[in-house]
Design a protein around this nucleic acid. Structure first.
Lengths: 128, 128
DNA sequence: TCTTGACTTTGAGCGCACTCCAAGTTGTAG
DNA sequence: CTACAACTTGGAGTGCGCTCAAAGTCAAGA
């Protein structure tokens, strides 16, 4: 996280105005750091800034917003689960395609294969 | 994928100029569709358009670019693996936090707990 | 014949999340 | 005392990936 980003997050209300040293420089408390780490983790998993703002806002309002906050987290958790699924699917697809590329490279280096193999585009989405 | 996006992809060279019906409307072949599906899968896993362009370009150049293309796919596969790791970490974190929220909600509804439990912020990044 | 709707084009516009610029202040090292 | 680095501010700029607007063409249906 860059200093620019930290200031940006403060500007847009993701973090409360942070403590200052006597010279006016920002001093991040451990609580600030933990919160920033959490924000970072949410951003790294593509939670929109808007949603993080909403969460931060509720957090400021205190314990009565607990359920609303939990719902936000649950929604994001679902989103994460969906992302994982997409990624795993793509990962498998790439395994398939990479293996296919290797096969092709061997063919062209050493010569034709002993048997004619079917084109490996036997699955949707394997198009070269 | 919207029609807008399809035209955009054609404009930026992700797909070759596609066939037309007699009235000038685009007609996507099955090969086009398979390729688009692949592109969609890559985008859904955050491959940048730039990299997809590079891949498409190599693909047009024919078999001699096989290794370069494979490298692109391998790089993206690594990227995907890293993403999965991040997501799984975040998922576990959210499990933790959501459980904690539920605990808090039960406490406030029913009354104090029988025993004083330690605050659940026992791990980095669990800050409310 | 007229209307409707789906497509066509070029080029501009938008939302997101930063990212940087310019000008100013402060603390430290030489 | 001077130079420099590291911070401060408000506001502007950037890059990505779409997304839409405006004006035009064409085919089918009432």
């Amino acid at each position: 996280m860059t200093a620019h980003t930290l200031r940006y997050y403060e500007r847009v209300g993701l973090i409360q105005p942070v403590g200052r040293a006597s010279n006016g420089h920002r001093r991040y408390s451990e609580a600030d750091e933990a919160w920033l780490q959490f924000l970072h983790c949410m951003r790294a998993t593509h939670m929109p800034i808007r949603e993080m703002q909403r969460y931060a806002e509720l957090r400021e309002l205190g314990d009565s917003t607990s359920e609303a906050r939990r719902k936000i987290l649950e929604d994001h958790r679902s989103e994460i689960a969906a992302q994982i699924k997409r990624l795993e699917h793509a990962h498998a697809l790439l395994d398939h395609k990479i293996a296919n590329y290797k096969k092709i490279e061997n063919r062209t280096r050493i010569g034709g294969p002993k048997e004619i193999e079917p084109p490996v585009n036997c699955e949707v989405g394997i198009a070269s």
